[in-house]
């Protein structure tokens, strides 16, 4: 198992409030790692630390290291734009731009300076295919993204993230606002994507974590209580706190 992301003694603060305490995690390449835990346990803060999305929050800062492919992303001089290109993110609420389906997916490439129509066309098609959306939208690429259903919009956001060819995909509750069928599609998609991408997913839906992930980290009060193979977490966790959480005794 190669660690794609290696987190060492990572703390995070909002102002004086310490919300992550000494996180140590090794997230393996081309696997799905789920982060579970009650609201306010720090899992979203943590996932947003992996592509430095928290940088925009005033007074927030991290300590310790998060390495992607062995390089500390918090080291001075890190190119955050290129980091976020390598580490894509999908949010709970789908957030397509008020543009056409095509322009949404092409957005990142255009920002990066790609102008050639053929290259854009190809990337838009492969990205939509990888996001399992192509067949549903190929005949209406120039319609507004808002015309899509919630589930389709979420897959569009995944396609948009894939278009810039990332290595890591962070997903923060990607299916929590979707109906069961759309959720199943996203979960199937995660299964397929993990062949090529390292995926980290935050979910409140424990069964979803059990279904889609290879490894699971249980967060509680800003600490990792237990991190193990998903089978272990859901069948035979070592920590009482994990047991209480996955069986719904604790929340």
């Amino acid at each position: 198992m190669t660690a794609k992301i290696r987190v060492r003694d990572f703390d995070f603060y909002y102002g004086d409030a310490k919300v992550l305490h000494g996180i140590d995690l090794e997230i393996p390449e081309t696997q799905v790692t789920a982060l579970i835990g009650p609201s306010g346990c720090g899992k979203s803060t943590f996932i947003r630390s992996i592509n430095r999305m928290n940088d925009v929050i005033p007074d927030a800062h991290g300590e310790g290291t998060i390495e992607v492919d062995g390089k500390n992303i918090y080291a001075p001089g890190t190119d955050v734009v290129s980091l976020r290109r390598r580490v894509g993110m999908v949010f709970q609420k789908s957030n397509p731009f008020p543009k056409s389906i095509y322009d949404n997916v092409a957005y990142g490439l255009r920002i990066g300076g790609t102008r050639k129509k053929q290259e854009l066309d190809e990337t838009v098609e492969t990205s939509l295919q990888r996001a399992a959306l192509w067949n549903e939208v190929k005949d209406r690429l120039h319609e507004s993204a808002f015309a899509l259903s919630g589930g389709q919009q979420q897959r569009l956001c995944i396609a948009r993230a894939l278009a810039v060819d990332p290595e890591i995909l962070l997903m923060d509750e990607p299916a929590s606002a979707l109906d069961p069928i759309a959720t199943t599609k996203i979960e199937e998609l995660i299964w397929n994507l993990k062949q090529s991408y390292t995926i980290v997913i935050v979910t409140h839906n424990m069964q979803q974590a059990a279904r889609v992930s290879d490894r699971t980290a249980f967060f509680m009060l800003g600490k990792v209580v237990e991190y193990a193979e998903t089978n272990t977490i859901f069948m035979n966790p070592k920590e009482k706190m994990t047991e209480d959480y996955v069986t719904g005794r604790f929340g």
Binding site: M206, Q207, A210, I233, F234, M235, N236, T242, V246, T247
Partner: peptide, 9 residues
């Protein structure tokens, strides 16, 4: 209930 952990066992 989709039991987990000790419940599942």
């Amino acid at each position: 209930m989709q039991p987990a952990a000790g419940d599942l066992r």
